[in-house]
């Protein structure tokens, strides 16, 4: 009975359908050469084969997940710090630094981090993490600052210690805002991660970049379509998550 309801509920989630579509396309990709040959008749090799699309997608997701996690730890941590009594004065500074980080073009961050971190996934992770901090920080800050003062007052008044208050009252109440910040960060990063391939990180950007440099629009289409599908899937996934934590 309960399992049945759960299934019915799950079937109504677009995120699941999109994820299923993605999985199907990745499984079908190795057999899609005839399709792309039909679409691009002039192209002698119409399907990107340097790495499997499954491996590319996995590497792409890994880049996004690791960088978003790093950014979440830093962003939420900073938001907690500037909403404590001891850190309140740092709020303008932290905001300004995060906003400036956001204004650097991603390619510039990549170019600057290569001499420090070398080629590969490391500079891509650094750039993506830097990019994701601002939306997460802003979301977490808004959430923490919006905890009603009456709730804070009551929690303090009945004897919540500051740490328990943060964990049991403030962070749960800020969670919808933190998730919203994480959602924009992840979506931005799914798009930006493609550029990581320019410094040698494996990602869905690899076929796009190769397609651009070799004038092979089929590769660009293949990489671009999967990036877009990934972004839409993640967006719907977050929408479902936000609905689940929204207060009743």
């Amino acid at each position: 009975m309960n399992a049945e309801r759960l299934t019915r509920c799950a079937l109504r989630q677009p995120a699941l359908w999109l994820a299923a579509l993605l999985a199907f396309l990745l499984a079908a990709a190795p057999f899609s050469t005839p399709l792309f040959a039909l679409l691009f008749p002039e192209d002698p090799r119409p399907l990107y084969t340097r790495a499997s699309f499954f491996a590319l997608t996995l590497a792409h997701c890994e880049l996004v997940a690791v960088s978003s996690l790093i950014a979440a730890i830093i962003g939420v941590g900073l938001a907690i710090f500037v909403t404590r009594d001891s850190g309140r004065d740092f709020r303008p500074l932290v905001s300004a630094v995060a906003a400036v980080g956001q204004t650097f073009p991603p390619v510039a961050v990549l170019a600057l981090s290569v001499p420090l971190l070398g080629y590969g996934a490391a500079p891509a992770l650094a750039a993506l993490s830097l990019y994701a901090i601002l939306p997460i920080l802003e979301g977490a800050f808004t959430g923490l600052a919006n905890v009603p003062s009456g709730v804070r007052d009551a929690a303090q008044g009945v004897g919540f210690a500051p740490g328990i208050m943060l964990l049991e009252i403030e962070l749960p109440l800020a969670l919808p805002f933190i998730l919203a910040g994480l959602r924009s960060a992840v979506i931005i990063n799914i798009g930006t991660a493609a550029i990581g391939s320019s410094v040698g990180a494996l990602s869905l950007g690899s076929p796009i970049l190769e397609g651009l440099s070799a004038s092979n629009p089929a590769y660009v289409l293949q990489g671009g379509f999967l990036v877009a599908l990934l972004a839409v899937t993640a967006d719907r996934g977050f929408a479902a998550l936000e609905a689940a934590v929204r207060p009743r």
């Binding site: 009456g150 709730v151 009551a154 303090q156 008044g157 009945v158 009252i169």
Partner: peptide, 15 residues
């Protein structure tokens, strides 16, 4: 604070 009761206007409930 845990040893005394404390009550403010209704906004103080944990939502």
């Amino acid at each position: 604070r845990r040893g005394v009761g404390y009550c403010i206007q209704s906004v103080g409930l944990f939502p």
